[in-house]
Structure formats: C-alpha cells, structure tokens
Design a protein around this nucleic acid. Structure first.
Lengths: 242, 242
DNA sequence: CGGTCGATTGACACCTTTCAATACGGGTGG
DNA sequence: CCACCCGTATTGAAAGGTGTCAATCGACCG
C-alpha cells in the first residue's frame, strides 16, 4: 500500500526543507509506486543506466565503487530521505553501485518524467541541484576525515554524523539508534582494514564513547565523541526531499 | 580586455559540451566581467557568502578545507573550465575555500542573476545540476583513491587524471604540461605527509613514470602510470561549461 | 649577506595492514 | 537431532607503509 506524498512521514523531520502543496502534488504525480527490497539486494549497478529513480523511505543501504581487484570503497551510507540515481538521471550512467543492507522501502520515480522538472517546475530543479551540492559537501567532509584523521577519529566522526542524521529523521532516541551494517561496511567506508576497525571499535567501547553491537549504535555523550573526532558539533545542513 | 563568450577558447576543448548560440548569448549577458588574480590570492573563503560566481579561464588553483588545528585538506584542483562558487550560490555559503596557486583569469558572474537560470533557461539549469553531479562523481573517485591506494598509487592516479585534464583542454602536449603547485599542496590533496610525498615523487621519477619539477609535469607513458595506479584508462566524462 | 620558502634526505616511532587462528550463531542436509 | 558449513566478530603477532623530527641545500629577495 503506497504512501501518499502528502502524508510522507519524512516531511515531519527537521532535516528536510518544506514542500509547497503544489510541489507535493507534482511529486505525487511523478511517483510511480513503492518498492520493497531485501537486505543484500543491489538496487543500482555501477555503469548501469536505470530507467528509475528512488527516494529511500525506510531502511538502510550504501553506495560503493568496486575496484579491479575486488576491493571496494563505500562512498556513503544511505538513510531514509536520500535520493538515489541522480547521476544516472543526469550523466547517463551511475558512477557507483547502491545496495540495501537492511530491508528497504523506496519511492519509485520514473526517469522519463524527470526532465519535466527543469521545464515546468524550476523550484524543484533548483532543489535537485541543491541536493547534488549537499552530497558534494558531505563527500568533501568524508575526504577530509579520511585524509586527516586517525582510525579512532574517523570512526568517531562517522558515528557523530550517523547519530545526527538518525536524530534528525526520528530514528534515534536518547543516543540509541539502529545501524544495519557489518563492520566490513564501515571499514570500507573509512578506508580501514576490517581487523583494525574491529579493534578500534573495541577501543571506543572500552572508553564508553560509542557502543555498536547487534545492529544497535549507542552514544552516551555525543559531545565527547565529537571531541575525539576533533570536529565542531554543528547541525546537519537542511536538504530538499524528493 | 574581456573575452567574448562566443570566442571563449575553452569551447574548442573536447572536454566540454557544446553551447547553442542562444546559450552563448545568455551566458554573455550573465557575465559581469573578467578578473585577474595573483598566485596565493584567496578567491572564496569557507563559510563566506560571495555575491559572485566564477569560471576559471586561465591558471590553476585549489579548493580546500581548513581544520581546527591548522591542517588542511585539499578537495580538488582547479583548472580552466571549472565553475567556482556553486555551493555558495545554492546553499548560501561555501563549504570550502578556493585559492589561486598561479596567476588566474576568471569569468565573473553575478549571483543575483543566477536564479534566472532555473526560470528562463531550463537547459542551463540542467547543465548546472550536471556539473554538480560530475563534481560528486570525481570526489567519489578521489575518496576511493585515498581509501584504497598506497601513496605511490595515489600519486600515479592523481597524475593520470591531471594529465588527462591537461590534454583535454590543450594544456598538455606530448605528455608535458605545467602544474603550478607545491609538493605540500599535493600532499594535502592526497592525505599524505610532505616528507612521504617527496620520497614517493622521487620513486616515480627514478622509475621514469612521472617527473614533476619546477612546475612542469612530464609523463612519458600514461598507460604505464595508469597501470601503477591500478586504474582503467577511461576518458574524462564530458561536462558543461558555464 | 642574512633570511625565508620549497625541496630533499636519513633515522626512528607509530599506526595500520596482513596473516592466522578461534569463537559464535544461523542455516542445511544427513 | 546433530554434524557441518558459512558469514561475522574477535584476538594475537609480525611485517610494512606512513608520519614525525631534524638537518641540509638551493633559489630568491630585501
């Protein structure tokens, strides 16, 4: 049973910019349906040219690139509210793959109707560009983290950002939220080996900074964790919801 | 003496998508003037809200973030054809700083006229989004490089991409092109220490893979260098020119 | 000529990776 | 019902890449 855009639970989140009623109507007509996929399902493949675009409604996933020798780099975690497939829609093919790590529900949009954004709804086209800029901004932060932080700091940074995102969309309560990834996923995201990631997680746990166990992340004191990461505790930039 | 958009030398480059005559006229009217700056000049500051946007015409620069403790992460090198200030234009403020490392000539656009893109010229708005997607794509590649490659591979990767870009805009001839950065800049871009960068450069030189000296980069055999980087030698994705 | 900036080198410490082995839970087939 | 297999998490030890500290050198400049 598909959710009506007008009643989309994500709209209540503080993270997203408001829609005008007209925008909501427009998105509704643009929406083809809803889709549920199992953990492990690959939604989009690098180099593919999907006829569809998505917005994550529920569940988690990740974007990643695969290298020639089989290793992979996780570019980004996918959370509810994220728009998926922009690159394919614009550049013709995906620069990375997208996979679900938990059960996911997605809004499905038709790529063919995509162009009408730019012709008939300039505000929505503007939002799309904004979204791309937000992604770039975040990726710049990730790059900085990998380049300048030690493993402990990098994990701390990641957990702070994750917790902030979780709080802003109502996934987190009192510093506790679900986090459906394997240690290998996090290792690939931060450019660390699995073994070292595991040991660094143990260190964060013993210092009572963050505890990630059985798909549950708990952070007793976000400020202390941010301190370890050497980051300012700023709120996430607002972003459009497609 | 300002260059007319219709005679912009960059249009002849294979890297950029074509403009329609109408697009060219539109950009011309949007262009406020030209600007020349000295090496070392900061064009945009992180957190600032510039009233102007730029396209690099000549010269080189870099985008970077500064950390609390004074270190910095170089996000991207700036080459002729790059659009500067999109984040400020969209999100209100820059997520990074932009600095010239050589003398630069820039096209100056007025941010106020920016919005007319989306209302009156949907194709150009589309290009803008495309541009943001290309940047994100490239940053994903950089992230992969930092996360998965060793120092030797990372430098090789960087030089391949730089040489490709140089060739596509006519800066490089026979594997030789100007490259106006310090070793420290490249170190900050790849998340390496200055010392290690220096030693790795020496290694590339002794193996006759790449020689970067006195602002000149020379690569005798691009394929061999790409091989060291462990990358496929694909051509750069086409991008819009603003 | 002293001073500054960027490039270069050597030695050493440290973070991270790699190799190996164990533990634990869930699923499957005998 | 139990043995077996597989994916994930953990742990120890050794090897290797990278960072830090320090000193030298050359070019440019006031």
């Amino acid at each position: 049973m598909a959710t009506a855009c007008a009643h989309c639970p994500l709209h209540r989140s503080s993270l997203f910019l408001d829609h005008s009623p007209d925008d909501t109507r427009f998105m509704q007509q643009f929406k083809v349906g809803e889709m549920t996929i199992d953990p492990g399902t690959t939604l989009l493949m690098e180099g593919s040219n999907s006829p569809q675009l998505f917005t994550a409604l529920r569940g988690m996933g990740l974007r990643y690139k695969t290298l020639a020798d089989g290793r992979r780099q996780v570019l980004n975690l996918v959370f509810p509210g994220d728009f998926i497939g922009l690159q394919a829609g614009l550049m013709g093919e995906m620069g990375h793959s997208v996979q679900a790590t938990s059960a996911m529900t997605l809004c499905v949009f038709d790529r063919a109707g995509f162009w009408s954004f730019f012709r008939s709804h300039p505000e929505r086209a503007f939002d799309l560009t904004w979204l791309a800029a937000v992604e770039e901004h975040f990726m710049g932060e990730a790059l900085t983290s990998m380049g300048q932080r030690t493993a402990l700091g990098a994990l701390a940074w990641a957990f702070v950002r994750i917790m902030q995102r979780g709080e802003s969309i109502g996934l987190a309560k009192d510093g506790i939220m679900p986090l459906a990834y394997r240690q290998q996923d996090m290792a690939d995201a931060l450019g660390l080996s699995l073994v070292h990631t595991n040991k660094t997680l143990a260190r964060l746990r013993s210092r009572q900074l963050a505890n990630w166990h059985d798909g549950i992340l708990s952070v007793p004191n976000l400020e202390k964790l941010a301190d370890v990461a050497g980051m300012e505790l700023e709120s996430l930039p607002k972003r459009p919801l497609m």
